[in-house]
Amino acid sequence: MNIAFTLPFAVIVIGAFLAVTRSNILHAVFGLAISLVGVAGAFLALGSPFTAVMEVLIYVGGIAVTMIFAVMLSSVSSPAERGGFLRKSLAALVAGLFLAGGSLIIVNADFGAGNHLSTDAWSIQAVGRDLLDRFNLAFESLSLVLLLAIVGAIVIVRREPVLPADQDDAPEEEAA
């Protein structure tokens, strides 16, 4: 067994298990963060340190933290997991079937994979050059998408200005 594979594997699986089973949502987010660190490790093992760094920076540093904020803003109390067992077992059955089917395909498929690539070939320089050259349009579009997402998020959560006579909005005020 290869430590470069097994360590990320263990971290990913443990983290993901926490993330999908903990009923306390904060714990689940922490599980997600752990799992994502594992994914970053897998990226490293696949010879791409740059994406690994980005994974940690954006996912763990950005998305997970935003989720924690959201949890705190929605006054945390996770909904009671009603009707638990049937629902969970059905979901587990579907996911398990999917896992089984996929595994069968992967095991039986012949990808013609040879030796892995020498890591020298994928330098950060190559990525940077391609990003600003060959994929320039996609890159710039993505920046636009991100900007729009930020503006959109602000617009969506912005509170409607409350008119004094308008009683309907009162509960929302309390909720915040």
Partner: peptide, 19 residues
């Protein structure tokens, strides 16, 4: 769940057929 179930069934069918 329903749509994934169909995916899973298709995957199983293909996977079993291949094996």
């Amino acid at each position: 769940g329903t749509s994934i179930l169909l995916f899973a069934a298709a995957a199983l069918y293909i996977g079993l057929g291949a094996s």
